[in-house]
Write a protein that binds this DNA or RNA. Structure first.
Lengths: 169, 169
DNA sequence: CGAAATCACTTGCACCGTTAACTGATCGCC
DNA sequence: GGCGATCAGTTAACGGTGCAAGTGATTTCG
């Protein structure tokens, strides 16, 4: 713990920039989604995950991992969605312990309506400011940090690959 | 809004990696600080800002900008700190509308005890995984994103420079 | 000089998220 | 086959955060 007591000047600036981005970017995305669609970023992520899955159906636990969510948190959000008619829940025929969440047409319409504005904001705040090289660096940096935090935990992209059939390689 | 309807495959992967980092990195930092010092990352940021300022004193509004915080949020946290004897509050002699928050020796001892473990975790999760070039890229990426979100808003680093006398040029 | 407007901050209320205890369903072991 | 253990998910209680209204101090302008 005594190896490297403090950050040097460059590291401090990098760190302050990262922390600020860590706070402001989610806040900005939440603000846009709340304003234009009445959705939090987390709610959007849940709907997006369901909309991309085959049959628009996913086990709650799989959806929770995809959305970086605890199970209680997801349970409450899905309960709200069910009340609004965006999602239906039922036991998994293969294993009664699992619960399958299925997105309705109304839910799909909701996320389809919200997506363009959100993607546009993501482009505006992130991709438009960055060079192609920086985008590659950003992905690499993100992958490394995530892997350090959770070495054997599947990242959302992997879950997307495995459960949703999205992506390649 | 119709300019670029969707993200391509590379952009999607970059985006998923960034979103995951946006969620997991703050969670990991909170977990370490909570475990080892009983502090949230936000509380640490407030204490760190005060500890670095001249006279360990700062106006509430300046501290709020530094910590990316709303004023009510900061007010409650500082009220808790005051109750624990880590901070004292009083009106600014120059302008009675401002409130000066001053860190006590006990508060300084608290943040000084928490800092090494936190910095060590920051190193472990971020800097140790990254090359020097990636660190430079990360700072540049963060600066650009922050500036896009808030073009004329001062970033914490700038506030640190101006109000705390930290850093250079 | 005094009243209205503005500014910095604090308080009250509603909502959201985490934690711990609980319900149902399946698996392991005898 | 039946009992305990484990797993998936829900529910209830607590703490924290954002928003709107309120307080106190200062500036502005007639």
């Amino acid at each position: 713990m005594e190896e490297a007591p403090w950050l040097d000047d460059d590291e401090t600036k990098t760190w302050l920039a990262l922390v600020s981005m860590l706070i402001r970017l989610p806040a900005a995305l939440d603000a846009q989604l709340q304003r234009d669609a009445g959705l939090s970023h987390f709610e959007y992520q849940v709907l997006a995950g369901l909309s991309m899955s085959p049959g628009r159906t996913l086990r709650m636990s799989t959806l929770a991992r995809f959305a970086d969510s605890s199970l209680p948190r997801l349970s409450q959000v899905v309960a709200r969605f069910e009340k609004r008619g965006w999602v239906r829940r039922g036991p998994d025929p293969d294993d009664g312990r699992y619960t399958l969440a299925t997105m309705t047409d109304e839910g799909f319409a909701k996320v389809a309506a919200a997506a363009p504005g959100h993607v546009s904001e993501v482009r505006r705040l992130v991709f438009d400011s960055l060079t192609k090289a920086q985008q590659r660096q950003l992905q690499s940096i993100g992958d490394r940090v995530i892997h350090t935090i959770d070495p054997d935990g599947a990242c959302p992209a992997t879950i997307a690959d495995a459960a949703l059939g999205v992506g390649d390689s």
